[in-house]
Design a protein around this nucleic acid. Structure first.
Length: 480
RNA sequence: GGCCCGUUGGUCAAGAGGUUAAGACACCGCCCUUUCACGGCGGAAUCAUGAGUUCGAUUCUCGUACGGGUCACCA
């Protein structure tokens, strides 16, 4: 049997799902699934100060909405639980003790103040190893007296630590660069640096997929594996997602670049499928195809590590919008109506044909969030700006427009079958009978009805949306 | 600042020694057309830079520049 792989997604419950995190989850999931492997979800809630209520739900909801399903995780024990780090505390302490026994870790009693004094004016400066070689008696004494302490990893002070990343190749760091990082904090909780290593090993994770901000700290984790005598996992570091600010500067994607959480994007009217499709292509590209549209199932078949890019990718909201617009066009009619019509029902007067309007809007919106704005002209009669009547191509003027509208009004009043096709025939005939250009009549009527230069449909389509009564009132208002 | 990583059009990107250097978004033009949109067609636009290796470098090597990441009792 072929060797099976296991990946994981290990988010912190921060209350929102950053889009970069989501992409990490996606790639991690896809990597496992592309090879028939296992995907684990683990909650890393060891930062007690940043705990947010309900945050775990946000994570679970996001995964459910995007179709990223885990084989093991909270509520789905696969024999490696619990999957929430705060419920695994004794484990970490046992392993930390093991490291102290073997001389790979030690107690440190330095105060936060002393640590702070070690930093330079730019806030840079690491631990100096002050407690590295405390006499055992002193340690025992301080421990017995209940003095606050942390446990630090003892780094080698010479030599080089290297590992091979699947994206970036060999990465080497001088051990002298490594500081004695904290494994167990003063509050008894482990740091990410420590517990993720313990958990990944215990849970059988074979491939660690994460953002490239961990690229240079990975040697420290490798050293931990070595200290325990555990086999190091394969590392797959992902290029970062960047945002571009108004000045054109790029940096790690954050709130200042716009909506960056999955929840925000959904709230703005983006479809999960579109978001997934777009971010799948940010930092990865499929082989042998220029295709842009992929379902999760297709991605699962296509994903492979050699399609991963090394360079950071700028998140382009324009392209996301385009994807979303395409997904909206592809939605089944019923699903689309279910989302669009309620929005229109809230803002448009009762006589409006909301379903028709929704249909007209469909090819013109990129997100559902645009609907209220695009339909505002139907929500209420905006004042008519006479200058809109002037149109070069159709050679119309306000005077001519009023004349044409006044002329066709009686005809329209007699129309029984109030729909686009009928109205179009009637107005076209009216134009022909009176020596007007059809385009000119359409222009006049559309402007008079919508009071907008750009509308989500032609004159007669809008007339159908407004209904007979509202249309006639709007037209009469225009020639008064 | 030290260390690490990266650099193909405005953006996402394919290509990995010899190519007219794909494709997509955005942009521009034309067509379709009762406006806009959709759709169709076309266009402009890229290998950061210097040196080396080579018959030949976008592709390999080194330097430079620029960009990013990281140096927490955060993950």
């Amino acid at each position: 049997m072929a060797e099976t792989i296991t990946t994981r997604f290990a988010p912190s419950p921060t209350g929102h799902m950053h889009i970069g995190n989501l992409r990490t989850a996606l790639y991690s999931y896809l990597l496992a699934k592309a090879q028939g492997g296992k995907f684990i979800l683990r909650i890393e809630d060891t930062d007690r100060e940043r705990l947010v209520e309900g945050a775990q739900e946000v994570i679970l909801d996001t995964l459910r909405m995007t179709g990223i399903t885990y084989d093991e995780g909270p509520g789905k024990d696969g024999g490696h639980g619990p999957y929430i780090q705060s419920e695994r505390l004794p484990l970490y302490h046992d392993y930390a003790q093991q490291l102290i026994q073997s001389g790979h870790a030690y107690y440190c009693f330095c105060t936060p103040e002393r640590l702070e004094s070690l930093k330079d004016e730019k806030g840079i400066g690491g631990y100096d190893g002050h407690c590295r070689n405390l006499p055992p008696e002193e340690v025992a004494e301080k421990l017995a007296s209940g003095m606050p302490h942390v446990i630090r990893q003892k780094m080698p002070q010479t030599g080089v630590t290297s590992y091979t990343d699947h994206v970036y190749g060999e990465v080497s760091i001088d051990n002298a660069e490594l500081r004695d990082q904290i494994l167990i904090k003063a509050d008894g909780y482990p740091t990410y640096n420590f517990c993720h290593v313990v958990d990944d090993h215990l849970m059988g994770v074979t491939h660690v997929v994460r953002g490239n901000e961990y690229l240079t700290s990975t040697p420290k984790y490798c050293l931990l594996y070595d200290a325990f005598g555990w086999e190091r996992p394969a590392y797959v570091h992902l290029p970062l997602l960047m945002g571009k600010d108004a000045d054109g500067n790029v940096s790690k994607l954050s709130k200042r670049h716009g909506a960056v959480s999955f929840q925000d994007l959904v709230r703005q009217g983006y479809l999960p499928e579109a978001i997934v499709n777009y971010i799948a292509l940010l930092g990865w590209s499929p082989k042998d195809t220029t295709e842009e549209f992929f379902t999760m199932d297709e991605l699962k078949k296509l994903f492979s590590m050699d399609g991963l890019s090394k360079s950071p990718a700028v998140f382009d909201y324009e392209k996301l919008k385009w994807f979303n617009g395409e997904y909206i066009k592809k939605m089944p009619v019923d699903a689309y109506r279910e989302r669009a019509v309620p929005i229109l029902e809230e803002i448009c007067p009762p006589g409006t044909d909301r379903e028709k309007l929704a249909e007209l809007l469909r090819t013109r919106i990129a997100t559902f969030g645009e609907i209220p704005e695009r339909a505002a002209f139907a929500a209420e009669r905006i004042p008519l700006d006479e200058s809109l009547f002037t149109n070069k191509k159709n050679k119309t003027t306000p005077e001519l427009c009023r004349e044409m509208i006044a002329g066709c009004l009686p005809l329209l009043e007699g129309v029984e079958q109030w729909d686009n096709d009928t109205l179009f025939v009637v107005l076209k005939q009216f134009a022909a009978d009176n020596g007007y250009k059809a385009g000119a009549v359409m222009w006049a009527v559309r402007i008079a009805v919508a009071r907008l230069a750009v509308t989500p449909g032609g004159a007669t389509e809008l007339m159908e949306v407004f209904g007979k009564a509202e249309t006639l009132e709007r037209l009469q208002e225009a020639v008064k």
